[in-house]
Amino acid sequence: MANNIKKIAVMTSGGDSPGMNAAVRSVVRTCAYHKIQCLGIYRGYEGMMDGDFVELDARSVRGIINKGGTFLKSARSNRFRTEEGRKIAHSKLTQAGVDALVVIGGDGTFTGALCFNAEFKFPVIGIPGTIDNDISGTDRTLGYDTALNTAVEAIDKIRDTAHSHDRLFFVEVMGRDVGHIALHAGVGAGAEEILIPEEDMGIERLVESLERSKTSGKTSSIVVVAEGDKIGKSVFELKDYVDENLEEYDVRVSVLGHMQRGGSPSCYDRVLASRMGVKAVESLLAGKSNYMVGTIHDKMSLTPLREAIKGKSKINKELIRVSEIMTT
């Protein structure tokens, strides 16, 4: 391993996801294992420019592996988008004696890291922390498994009410650009229909499907909708359309929203975070930079940050077919 790195900084940025704390813990303890210093950056790139740093050691991250959110906080930063802002950030890191950076986040976080490296040749490694699972180069992003479990649990509870009152529920889950949460949670919760950005079902086909469900004897239904689905302008527009065209349905809407980001991370996400943190630090020590750590077929991998940003995770076509069969 290269021995010119004496201090690594770690930060979380963008939307929070369950497992971020576990990833920070792993980075810190891997640094301790290799006898190098670790610095935590509060509030992402914004805190970097403010010099909002804290020294971290193995004991300072105890008791956080099971905590949701991120104790290092997260913030958007317009200042870091400017050349002047990045110069300030670089100056603050240099003054603090930081030699390399681990960034935990999604597309925006990685884009900032790439730009920072290009301008200052500053070593960076990314850990994909986003519940949407929308980054190429890893089978699962940090927080996705927990978000799925949260969504399924919520849909199960909504179904109890749907069944009790003979209602149709449109349940909106997160997924602005991809439908991973909607597809997996929909299959897992036994939804009657699943609407995702990748498959334009069309409003008429949806109505026909709901009519078939009613004719077959179903008294209640659940339709899981990814927030980025293209059928209507919003899930509430879908509700209004069904109200107008299928009078026999009593329709309700439930938007799960940010509850999917919160909560204690699942065991899977805790283990994934631990593996990613070790891989990130040891990659930097081995002289690697501008990579994102991930898992492919459960093997740790490195993907160039540029490819991770430009790529788009692919929806599981086989699971789409399974969902169609299950809704028969």
Rank of each mutant, 00 (worst) to 15 (best):
V207G: 09
G287P: 07
G175K: 02
S60G: 10
G202Y: 11
I8P: 07
A308Q: 05
V255P: 03
V224G: 11
L72H: 05
L72P: 05
T138E: 06
E83S: 13
A280H: 00
C115S: 15
Y45V: 03
L168P: 05
L39N: 13
A189Y: 03
N117H: 13
D250Q: 14
L114D: 06
Y42P: 02
D99Q: 04
V242Y: 09
F80Y: 12
F80S: 06
E119D: 11
N66V: 08
L142C: 01
A2V: 15
T219H: 12
F110C: 00
F122K: 00
A226N: 04
G179L: 13
V271T: 15
L39P: 10
R140N: 07
S77D: 03
R62H: 08
G68F: 01
E237P: 01
K233Q: 14
L101I: 02
I158M: 14
N316F: 14
K310Q: 04
S220Q: 15
Q260A: 08
S60I: 13
R159N: 14
G232W: 03
L101K: 03
F120K: 13
N21K: 07
E153F: 07
G175T: 14
D139N: 09
V54G: 08
G47F: 13
N21F: 00
C115H: 12
I315K: 02
H258R: 05
V103I: 07
G129R: 04
F80P: 04
S264A: 02
S216K: 13
M276G: 05
K314F: 04
F116A: 04
G51L: 08
R86S: 08
A308E: 00
G143W: 11
Y241H: 09
E307Q: 06
H258M: 12
H163M: 14
R321H: 11
E227C: 06
D52Q: 07
T12F: 04
G51V: 09
Y291C: 00
N78A: 03
V103E: 00
E83T: 08
G129N: 00
A96Y: 12
K299F: 11
E153P: 03
D166L: 09
L142M: 00
Q95W: 11
V223P: 01
A189G: 11
T295H: 11
S60L: 13
R205Q: 08
D16Q: 13
H165V: 15
M11S: 05
M48G: 09
F170I: 14
S266C: 12
S26C: 00
I325T: 09
A191Y: 13
V54E: 15
A147Y: 13
K87S: 15
E237S: 15
P128I: 01
G106W: 10
G294V: 05
